[in-house]
């Protein structure tokens, strides 16, 4: 084992042409880049979305230079811990489980969960026994379904996109996801003529208290700086401007 580790280490050192020490002044922000409308990469390869604009506004408020780094969702907390970036602004819901791993800022938005089915299915939230329900793996929505609906046929997908596809395909009876995200997808895929919401919006402690900015445990100064900036942009109207650009409802 030692030999392998040693060999790997030598190789790693030999190959770190791309490795560089971090510039202490620049703040590095991690995001997924594949979660429209919150964060996504547009056709020019530029990061766009609500998270990105909020992040940029916060940096402007804090008068710090920020760089964005994209990272797969699965590895986003480990990458933060491995110091690949200093904060995650990627629509990460604040919940107890994650609080054990990272520290969160105040919430910067809140959207409830939503269940969606094909038009005319007439399901009720109180009776989903045996239904095929799709969620994205390792999200608060999958944790919610696992805890609250033990009698459904739960299918976990790597991305929300794949779960949505299977809803359209007819493999799934319904999908449980963030309301803003699923709304964005429905609009692009036939709208309310083809899909319908099942029951009310879902609010539950497991779903967390909205999305926060995650930093490494103990990074108190950074949390304080983010919170201060967040209050400022909410007060000076910047937040509302960004909100209205993406949503026709208030997600504060």
């Amino acid at each position: 084992m030692k030999k392998i580790v040693l060999a790997l280490a030598t190789l790693g050192i030999a190959l770190t042409s791309g490795a560089y020490a971090q510039n202490a002044k620049t703040l590095r922000l991690g995001t997924e880049g594949a979660y429209p409308p919150f964060n996504f990469t547009d056709k020019n390869g530029k990061l766009q979305g609500f998270d990105i604009e909020i992040g940029d506004a916060l940096c402007a408020e804090m008068k710090r230079k920020c760089d964005w780094v994209t990272q797969d969702w699965d590895g986003i907390i480990p990458a933060l811990k491995a110091k690949k970036f200093d904060a995650i602004i990627a629509s990460m819901s604040i919940n107890e489980k994650r609080k054990k791993e990272v520290d969160f800022s105040d919430r910067y938005y809140f959207t409830p969960g939503m269940m969606v089915a094909r038009k005319g299915s007439g399901y009720k939230q109180s009776d989903l026994k045996g239904k095929a329900v799709g969620v994205q793996l390792e999200t608060t929505h999958s944790q919610f379904m696992e805890a609250r609906y033990k009698d459904v046929n739960l299918k976990q997908y790597k991305t929300q996109e794949e779960a949505n596809l299977d809803l359209a395909n007819g493999r799934l009876d319904l999908v449980m996801a963030d309301s803003a995200v699923i709304d964005d997808w429905i609009k692009a895929n036939g709208g309310s003529a083809k899909f319908e919401r099942v029951g009310d919006f879902v609010r539950d402690p497991i779903l967390g208290n909205g999305a926060g900015i995650a930093v490494r445990k103990g990074d108190k100064d950074l949390v304080a700086a983010f919170n201060k900036a967040l209050t400022a942009i909410k007060a000076n109207g910047t937040y509302t401007k960004i909100n209205n650009k993406y949503f026709d409802f208030d997600i504060r």
């Binding site: 580790v5 790997l8 280490a9 790693g12 770190t16 791309g18 490795a19 560089y20 020490a21 971090q22 480990p78 491995a82 110091k83 690949k84």
Partner: peptide, 18 residues
């Protein structure tokens, strides 16, 4: 992950394995 964690343990400054 392995090499990154190793680097974090070895070097004081953050050296990124990109």
């Amino acid at each position: 992950y392995g090499v990154q964690n190793l680097f974090n343990a070895i070097f004081e400054d953050f050296v990124e394995v990109d």
